[in-house]
C-alpha cells in the first residue's frame, strides 16, 4: 500500500528541487541585471552630481551678478545709472571716431622710419645733441601714446579733442625730423641728413637746412639734391653769391642740369 501523503510530500520536495536551478538562473540573471543597473545609475548619478553643483554655482553666480547691479541701482542710483549710459553712448560714437584714428595711422613718415632702422651705421659723434635728444624722447613718448590709442580705442573715444590736436601736420613733421636726426646720429646715413635738410627748408628753418645739407655733402659729395638744398638755403640766408659759387663749382664737377637751372634762376632773380 502506497503512503500517498508521504509521496505527495516527496513530490512537493522534488518540485521545489526541480525549480531550484531555474530559480537560481533567474535570480542570478536578476542580480546581474540589478548590478548593471546600479552601476549605470551610479555612473549617471556621478555625472549628475558633477553637473548639478556646476549648474547651481552658475545659478548662484548669475544671481549674484544680477542682484548686485540691481541693488546698486536701487541704493545708489547716481553711480549706477551713468555707467550703462556711458557704455551705450560710446558704442555708437566709437565707430566714426575710430575712422579718424585710422587717418592718423596712415602718416607716411612712420613707415619710412621703420625702414631706416634696419641699416645700422657708426654713431655720429660730432653733433651736440643732449637737449635735442631729450625733446625727441619726450615726443616719441607722445607718439607711443598715439599708437596705444590706436590699439585701445576706448581711450581715444573718451576724448576726441586730444586726437585732433595730434593730427596737426607740423607736429608730425617736427617729430619726423627729430626722429630722423636721432637715426642719423646712429647711422650717419646721408639720405637721412638730406631728408632733414629738406624738411627744415620746407619749414623755413634755413640755417638748419644749410647745416644738414653741408653735413650731407661732407658725407657724400655727389648728391645733387643736397647741393641744391645747400644753395637754396644760402640764398634764403642772404648769401646769394656764395650760393652761385658753390653751384658753379658743383656744375663743373657733376654737369647737373638741375643745378644749372637753379643757378640761372638765382642769377635771374627768379629764386630769392
Amino acid at each position: 500500500m502506497l503512503n500517498i501523503i508521504d509521496l505527495e510530500k516527496r513530490w512537493f520536495r522534488y518540485k521545489i528541487k526541480s525549480y531550484i536551478p531555474h530559480a537560481a538562473i533567474v535570480s542570478s540573471v536578476l542580480i546581474i541585471l540589478s548590478i548593471i543597473l546600479i552601476y549605470t545609475t551610479q555612473e549617471d548619478s556621478v555625472v549628475a552630481t558633477v553637473e548639478k553643483p556646476l549648474h547651481q554655482n552658475l545659478i548662484v553666480q548669475s544671481e549674484s551678478i544680477t542682484i548686485a547691479p540691481i541693488e546698486k541701482i536701487e541704493t545708489e542710483p547716481i553711480y549706477v545709472e551713468p555707467k550703462p549710459i556711458v557704455v551705450k553712448k560710446q558704442l555708437p560714437l566709437a565707430r566714426p571716431q575710430y575712422k579718424e584714428v585710422t587717418q592718423v595711422k596712415l602718416s607716411p613718415s612712420l613707415d619710412f622710419m621703420k625702414k631706416m632702422q634696419d641699416s645700422r651705421q657708426p654713431y655720429y659723434k660730432n653733433e651736440p645733441t643732449n637737449g635735442r635728444s631729450r625733446t625727441v624722447r619726450k615726443e616719441t613718448s607722445t607718439t607711443k601714446k598715439v599708437i596705444k590709442t590706436k590699439a585701445a580705442p576706448k581711450q581715444v573715444r573718451q576724448d576726441p579733442v586730444a586726437i585732433k590736436k595730434i593730427q596737426i601736420k607740423r607736429q608730425n613733421t617736427q617729430n619726423d625730423i627729430f626722429e630722423i636726426i636721432e637715426r642719423f646720429k646712429k647711422n650717419n646715413n646721408p639720405a637721412l641728413s638730406l631728408f632733414v635738410a629738406k624738411k627744415y627748408y620746407e619749414l623755413g628753418e634755413y640755417k638748419q637746412s644749410y647745416n644738414y645739407a653741408l653735413i650731407t655733402n661732407q658725407i657724400n659729395k655727389n648728391i645733387e639734391s643736397s647741393w641744391i638744398i645747400f644753395s637754396k638755403s644760402l640764398v634764403k640766408l642772404g648769401k646769394r653769391n656764395k650760393a652761385i659759387k658753390t653751384l658753379q663749382k658743383y656744375i663743373k664737377q657733376s654737369h647737373s642740369n638741375a643745378a644749372r637751372i637753379l643757378l640761372d634762376e638765382i642769377r635771374s632773380g627768379k629764386f630769392r
Partner: peptide
C-alpha cells in the same frame, strides 16, 4: 504530471 512524477518517485525512476 504530478501523478506521473509521484509514481516515478515511488518506483525510484526520479530521485527525490
Amino acid at each position: 504530471n504530478k501523478l506521473i512524477e509521484m509514481a516515478a518517485i515511488h518506483t525510484g525512476l526520479i530521485d527525490a
